[in-house]
Write a protein that binds this DNA or RNA. Structure first.
Length: 485
RNA sequence: GGUCCCAUCGACUAAUGGUUAGGUCACCACCCUUUCAAGGUGGCAGUACGGGUUCGAAUCCCGUUGGGAUCACCA
């Protein structure tokens, strides 16, 4: 039987980084087995619908390098892939359960339900729907039920959970899980607005869409027994379950906005590369060998296995993510990065040639984490109005430095080549000839040319800056300093 | 609170009964050096606790403790 996985998010907001990892694991697993990964939108809660959420999910997954085999926009043999377009289906299946006596109608109002929970809380017992005392069709009887139905009263359909017996299933990452039916609530399957709840819709769709593996977050583990009961009630073959460990805040609670931005798009906006994010997130809860850190999507697919997924939750360490991004920044082909860099420069109203952008990129990328740091980190590359670090200047600009630079200027002007190797010879030669330690030359020069004490090698920097620019900057600086009065 | 899940350095993890418990991030030191990085070398640091089983336990079993998830006409 072929592997069919699914990512089934609810369009209630921007895609969470945890959601991205769930999508990724589904994708990696399906692709590893040469199977299909489908996207299904679980929009059965009309009250929580958020405009644009579905687009964001699709957009982010594509950005991350995942292309679904079947989806709302792409279609497929088991569509539609939006649950709100399948409501008729769920109603029919709910009715089937009603006929089989595996489900029943309940007429309680939310106030009555609240009161029930209040009573149970006061009595110190677990909150659970009590079909023998609430206004279910069992307490109401057939006549009253029919009368209520005819009068158009609101009702929902609940799952009739057995009063005793074990419910068990085998989870690929957790092993066998056993729950007693007495601890399982009579879950609502069909809401009074005619829409299904997650539980019904997800079981019906996973069956109809022939999903072989349900890979989802650990937060679904407690409701899985309900799903098992549903498969049994329909007499359907169960998919295999795999509940993924949670992504955690630094304090080990479920990763949330409390500790910063957790939307996948925020990481994109900050400037993380999709490959780096995917690489990092893949290694949160799974690791093929632990003797290496950098993997391409193709390699992740090749090595992925659910058996090696960890059980314990994983703290999301932004520092390590940043390190990884820097690794990608350094290892990536400069030519490939060029379009992104040009876009960033364009956003800063900087217009330079590809050739020059590439040189700057190669020069600076060793000391930054994000591509988008280049405009500010390398401000002196793009404008003559870069600022000079006063502290750095105070430290390295004095009479001696002044005379050195004055003496060096004509030499630089005469220099035939401004390639860094040549500059090394020219300036290094001057240094040797006059017995001046090169740092007494390099610091003042760096200060004048870049304004800051952090940056790439000076000769390389000068080469990229170009002879004219360097000479002009030195002359201008000397002029400004020379006549204080 | 009920139910369920989990437990190796600060963090991510490797070691599926036999290792001086390994790697990566972070941190510290040193080297390199032209500043800052990067890179290199080294260091700090862990099997939550208590019982079993076994010749031998991070690994299997039980308990304790701790953490987490979940208990909606949300997903």
């Amino acid at each position: 039987m072929s592997v069919r996985g699914r990512f089934a998010p609810s369009p209630t907001g921007f895609l969470h980084i945890g959601g991205l990892r769930t999508a990724l694991y589904n994708y990696l697993f399906a692709k590893h087995h040469g199977g299909a990964c489908i996207l299904r939108i679980e929009d059965t809660d009309q009250t929580r619908f958020v405009e644009g959420a579905e687009e964001n999910i699709v957009d982010i997954c594509r950005w991350a390098g995942m292309e679904f085999d079947e989806s709302p926009e792409k279609g497929g043999p088991f569509g539609p892939y939006r649950q709100s377009e399948r409501t008729e289906l769920y109603r029919n299946y709910a009715n089937e359960l009603l006929q089989k006596g595996m489900a029943y109608r309940a007429f309680d109002t939310s106030e009555e339900l609240d009161a029930m929970r209040e009573r149970q809380k006061n009595a110190g017992i677990a909150a659970k729907y009590d079909r023998t005392v609430m206004r279910s069709e069992y307490t109401l009887g057939p006549d009253e039920t029919t009368r209520l139905l005819d009068s158009g009263a609101d009702y929902c359909i609940r799952l009739k959970v057995p009063v005793s017996g074990d419910i068990r299933f085998n989870d690929i990452v957790r092993g066998e899980v056993i729950v007693n039916a007495r601890d399982v609530d009579d879950q609502i399957l069909l809401k009074s607005d005619g829409f299904p709840t997650y539980h019904l819709a997800n079981v019906v769709d996973d069956h109809l869409m022939q999903i072989s593996h349900v890979i989802r977050g650990e937060e679904w583990l407690p409701s899985t027994p309900k799903h098992v009961l549903l498969y049994q009630a329909f007499n359907w073959e169960m998919p295999r379950f795999a509940h993924l460990p949670l992504l955690l805040n630094p304090d080990k609670s479920k990763m949330s906005k409390r500790f910063g931005d957790v939307f996948a798009k925020s990481f994109r906006e900050k400037g993380f590369f999709p490959d780096a994010l995917v690489n990092f997130v893949a290694l949160l809860g799974w690791n093929p060998t632990a003797d290496r850190e950098i993997f391409t999507m193709t390699e992740l697919i090749e090595y992925f296995s659910l058996e090696k997924v960890n059980k314990a939750g994983a703290v999301f360490d932004t520092k390590k993510l940043e390190w990884m991004n820097a690794q990608y920044l350094r290892a990536s082909d400069a030519q490939t990065l060029l379009p992104s860099l040009q876009r960033i420069l364009c956003d800063h109203s900087i217009e330079i040639s590809d050739e020059r952008a590439k040189n700057i990129l190669i020069l600076l990328r060793e000391r930054i984490t994000f591509l988008n740091e280049i405009p500010s980190f390398g401000a002196y590359m793009f404008s003559e109005s870069y600022e000079i670090d006063e502290e750095y200047k105070a430290k390295h600009w004095n009479e001696e430095a002044s005379s050195i630079i004055h003496a060096l200027l004509p030499i630089l002007k005469q220099a035939e080549s401004f390639e860094h190797v040549q500059l090394n010879e020219t300036i290094g030669g001057y240094s040797k000839e006059h017995g001046i330690a090169s740092k007494f030359i390099i610091h003042p020069l760096r200060m004048i040319l870049t304004g800051k004490q952090v940056g790439a090698g000076l000769y390389e920097t000068m080469e990229v800056l170009g002879k004219d620019t360097c000479i002009n900057r030195i002359e201008r600086f000397l002029k400004e300093q020379g006549n204080p009065s």
